Simulated assay, not measured.
Amino acid sequence: MKKQDRHSFYRLGPEQILQAVESVGFECDGQLLALNSYENRVYLVGAGRESIVVKFYRPNRWSDSEILEEHLFTEELAEFDIPAVPPLSIKGSTLFHHDGHRFAFYPLKAGRAPDLESREQLEQLGRYIGRIHAVGAVRDFEHRPTLDVGTFGDDSYEFLIENGFIPKELEAAYEKVAEDLLHAVEARFESINPQLIRLHGDGHQGNILWDVSGDGAGSPYIIDFDDARMGPAIQDLWMFLSGDRANMSSSLDILLTAYDQFHDFDCRELALIEPLRSLRIMHHAAWLARRWDDPAFKDAFPWFNTQNYWEQHVLSLKEQMAAMQEPPLVWI
């Protein structure tokens, strides 16, 4: 197998995409549409009577074993009638290789973003996430990583400092607030010592497609398990909360009341919401920095790595230090 090369991945074009798809046995009709994805390259491809989605994996991010473990998890969920979207299995395989690229196929699913102000939709989300976690708690991942302070926080901090992304005049302020925040987050995790289970890992509105093609309120497709990993259950819930404290408390009550029908929720994990938000902020900045040699990122995120961006980043970390001092949300 030809070694994966990030520059070949950056230059991935229609000819290479269609050749890869046809190497598996599909007959392409020439229709090709790039879908909204930056970490990987995802395309809608016409293949005869129906269209399929092909996902090309970014080189050197996941091993084949880690990718296949994600595939197996979504297949396991689908066996329990949970609306995750597993990859297509073709002649017993879900991961394919061509000309140094790794890719998988998915059925096309249509839907729109969920309405997080809808009680009925929040209840459905809570039930399905509870069911995902009930399955996820049965066994651990063997190959995929864990969401922890080291990989999301410490590694992100060190990458930005060591690779010169933080402007010199902001280095002292960034180092002080980042180190203080990481110590506080680490202490919070140690005090709670949450149970770690298999997660979606990136539970937010953009990874839910709400199918409203039938009668009633419809139902969700839960997509993109690319960040699946071990972690605390609250990771798949907290990003569905927004607004002021009263609004978040109301949404939390709806989600967890539905969730708890299928999987017990440890209320101590509510104290991890702000620590997890802090880690996500730090990890996102480092994620952009790590991908900054990818032309697609420069086109999509032109505001990154500017003086204003880093000033706002330092301010966000200071705001998180303050948020860490507030009492956590409560579910009664």
Rank of each mutant, 00 (worst) to 15 (best):
N247I: 08
E69Y: 03
D29C: 11
I90H: 05
R144K: 07
W310R: 02
V42C: 12
H283D: 06
V54S: 02
L252M: 14
G201C: 03
G206I: 02
F165E: 00
H101F: 15
E162V: 02
L12A: 11
R11G: 09
A134E: 11
C267S: 13
G13T: 12
Y128F: 14
Y43W: 14
Q325K: 15
P145E: 05
P327H: 01
I90V: 14
E75L: 13
E27P: 00
S250G: 03
A78W: 06
W310A: 05
R291I: 02
A137G: 15
P87R: 06
E158W: 08
D226K: 09
Q261F: 03
V177Q: 01
D299T: 11
E171Q: 14
P59V: 08
L18E: 14
R41C: 05
F103Q: 12
S278L: 07
I82T: 07
E326W: 00
Q4L: 08
A322H: 04
F240Y: 15
V45E: 04
L196C: 00
L12C: 13
A78N: 06
S251F: 04
G153Y: 05
P327M: 01
E15V: 15
M282A: 05
R61A: 00
D226G: 12
G136A: 04
R144E: 01
V45C: 05
V185R: 00
P86K: 07
S63D: 07
R127F: 01
E171S: 08
Q31G: 14
G100D: 12
I90P: 02
P232S: 09
S251P: 03
R144P: 02
L276Q: 11
R58L: 01
E27Q: 13
K3Y: 07
P86H: 09
A296W: 07
W292I: 09
P232D: 06
G30Q: 13
P145H: 10
H200D: 02
L88Q: 13
A113R: 13
D202L: 03
L256R: 14
F152M: 13
K176N: 07
F159V: 10
E79T: 08
L276T: 12
F240V: 06
D215E: 15
A47N: 03
D29T: 13
S191D: 11
L276S: 11
D294H: 09
Y128C: 01
V45L: 06
A285Y: 01
A184N: 01
R131P: 00
P59C: 10
P107Y: 08
S249L: 08
S65V: 05
N40M: 08
E190D: 14
I281K: 10
I197L: 13
N207M: 02
R58Y: 00
V85G: 04
A217Q: 07
A246M: 06
S316M: 12
I67W: 02
R49G: 15
A217K: 09
M321G: 12
W287L: 03
L95T: 12
E171A: 09
L279T: 05
I166G: 03
E158N: 12
F225D: 01
H183C: 07
A173G: 04
D215T: 10
Q31D: 10
G218T: 05
E190K: 15
L72I: 02
G30A: 12
G203I: 02
L279I: 06
I332Y: 04
G164K: 07
L181G: 03
C267D: 11
D293F: 01
L35P: 10
S93I: 02
R61F: 10
L237G: 07
A286H: 10
V149M: 07
Q31I: 08
D140W: 01
I82C: 08
I192R: 00
